[in-house]
């Protein structure tokens, strides 16, 4: 169960974390608690893996090239293929999904050439073809994740 302070910290600072010399103190003042409480709470949330980080979400394709990639892998071979794919530093998210295309991952490379080279390497290493799905348009402005604070 999340403490009320933890919920506020998780929900209210996804979009505009203070860009001031003392951001945690600013948050403490906004929420009417001490700076130490805020620092300790973020430390706890981080240790408990509730937050991935306090940091930037970079706009897709503003630096380098990224693409979603899908593969259709026989169930019996999925663990091996997933492990091979995850080992690439260029791979960020890598999920199994319920579909005939059952492995989905995001690749980020410094250039299209590099991206294609990684894709070719993955196909060679795994023995399966890939389906490359680059972003054409991003319709979403606010990337924050709204938590339901009432449960």
């Amino acid at each position: 169960m999340l403490a009320p302070l933890h919920k506020r910290l998780l929900n209210d600072y996804q979009q505009d974390f203070p860009l001031s010399p003392t951001p945690y103190r600013d948050i403490a003042e906004q929420l009417g608690v001490s700076e130490d409480e805020v620092l300790n709470a973020f430390q706890t949330l981080s240790e408990q893996q509730m937050i991935s980080r306090i940091g930037p979400v970079i706009a897709p394709n503003s630096i380098g090239n990224s693409a979603l990639v899908a593969m259709a892998v026989p169930e019996i071979d999925l663990a091996r293929v997933a492990e091979l794919v995850s080992a690439y530093p260029e791979v960020n998210h890598n999920y199994e999904r319920e579909n005939r295309f059952n492995l989905w991952f995001v690749l980020i490379a410094d250039s299209e050439t590099h991206l294609k080279a990684v894709i070719a390497d993955i196909e060679t290493q795994t023995g399966y073809p890939t389906m490359l799905l680059p972003m054409l348009a991003d319709y979403f402005i606010n990337l924050g994740f709204e938590l339901n604070l009432h449960d």
Partner: peptide, 27 residues
């Protein structure tokens, strides 16, 4: 601070803040 604010204004940083792990939060 000024550089991060500028990168945000320019849109390269789409948002600057807490990135939650939704799976860990019960989602």
């Amino acid at each position: 601070i000024e550089r991060l604010a500028r990168l945000k204004t320019q849109g390269l940083i789409k948002r600057w803040g807490v990135v939650v792990k939704h799976r860990q939060l019960g989602y």
